[in-house]
Design a binder for these strands. Structure first.
Lengths: 222, 222
DNA sequence: GTCTATAAATGGATAGAC
DNA sequence: GTCTATCCATTTATAGAC
């Protein structure tokens, strides 16, 4: 931390602060205090909180693009889907403050709205590609008139899962949270798998419950 | 409008303002201006914006409870489900500003968070009851190990649908928006219906496309 | 109940010394 | 690059007259 450039430290600390305590709650001065630098110094590096958020979005956008436009050609089974979705959700978790405040944020920074929309489109394309691959490989068979809605459903879940857990307010470890959501998404595909795929899914169910148990959470509220 | 008590007018106008331009953007003075009363007068009736929001939530909570805990015993077909979900989403639409800013809002008013969570629980119970009724009637058959996830999926969609369309940013008439979402939710049930149910669903598909056409929107982006 | 006027508080932003 | 000091703008909130 000590050898980082101030500009880098500002981004790192801001992100942590936003994720933990909410973006809307943090002022420029708060960030400066957390870093133990003066507000003046902060403003020397970034023209206010807006500029910091834009820079953070740059980072987020780049990493999302890497995941979403990377080759999904080698995904052949539900196991592979599991891993892929896990990685996607993990990345979202690292920038979760964007998702907590989405509405307010896109209102305040219209430039971001356009770019965020583009990420959603990439997500849609990635999921579509993934499903097509699975269908070609014979692991899945989805009626044509349901496919579009199913894809939208998956994209939607992969976008708003954090909001749902935020409301539920049962604090879960990040890993459980993500496991649970991946499980949830795979659930959507199960009706369209063959017998083998269904058997596989049962395995995932076990894995999911184990993962929850490991981190001290429970699959079902008491 | 002229014969309404000022207190009522404040609530009515605030809600409209919040829904149209975002809650975070409106100050107490903005609301007073819109009503053409003085800020002092506004503060006489409500101890600031917080008090207004709480009063609006009171209204929302009551109407949601009426819908969610009302008798769903007479729901026997997918058609009935369609109507029921439509009414639910319509109510949410009337208080949509709560949903745009959900994260920030629940952070700012922790008291609201508890109550909002209770509404989600009611939603979950209502959907569960509805599905049980359909299963008893023979219209649906859902594998036991998928049921919980399916219910959560429906609740989640019925909560975050507006956020999704907000991002998509294709301004739709409220009616199309709601139609589309109901269609979307029913899609989740289709894999578990019998042949008759599936045929019925095709009819809904047509209805859905007609509804979109009527309001000048398109089912698919060009 | 409603107004005008004004105080108090907060957060955003910059100038100038080091 | 970094600090201190300060200013400006916005929003909240209240006092006191009508």
């Amino acid at each position: 931390m000590y050898d980082m450039k101030t500009k880098t430290r500002i981004l790192k600390t801001s992100r942590a602060l936003f994720n933990e305590a909410g973006e809307a709650e943090q002022t420029a001065v708060d960030i400066a205090n957390e870093l133990e630098i003066s507000p003046g110094n902060l403003y020397y590096h970034f023209k206010g909180k807006d500029a910091i958020i834009e820079a953070l979005f740059d980072e987020f956008e780049e990493e999302m693009r890497l995941i979403l436009t990377g080759s999904q050609g080698n995904i052949a089974s539900l196991e592979d889907v599991w891993v892929y979705i896990y990685i996607l959700l993990e990345e979202i978790y690292d920038f979760r403050f964007f998702y907590y405040n989405l509405g307010a944020l896109l209102d305040r920074y219209p430039g971001l709205a356009r770019r965020f929309r583009a990420i959603i489109e990439d997500k849609k394309a990635a999921i579509t590609g993934l499903i097509d691959t699975l269908e070609t490989g014979g692991a899945l068979d989805i009626p044509e008139n349901l496919k579009e809605a199913l894809i939208l459903q998956i994209v939607s879940t992969a976008t708003f899962w954090l909001s749902l857990y935020q409301i539920e307010d049962r604090p879960l470890e990040p890993a459980s949270l993500i496991h649970r959501t991946v499980y949830h998404i795979l659930t959507l595909l199960v009706p369209y798998t063959d017998e083998a795929g269904f058997a596989n899914f049962e395995k995932f169910t076990d894995y999911y419950h184990e993962a929850l148990a490991e981190t001290g959470a429970r699959a079902h509220p008491s």
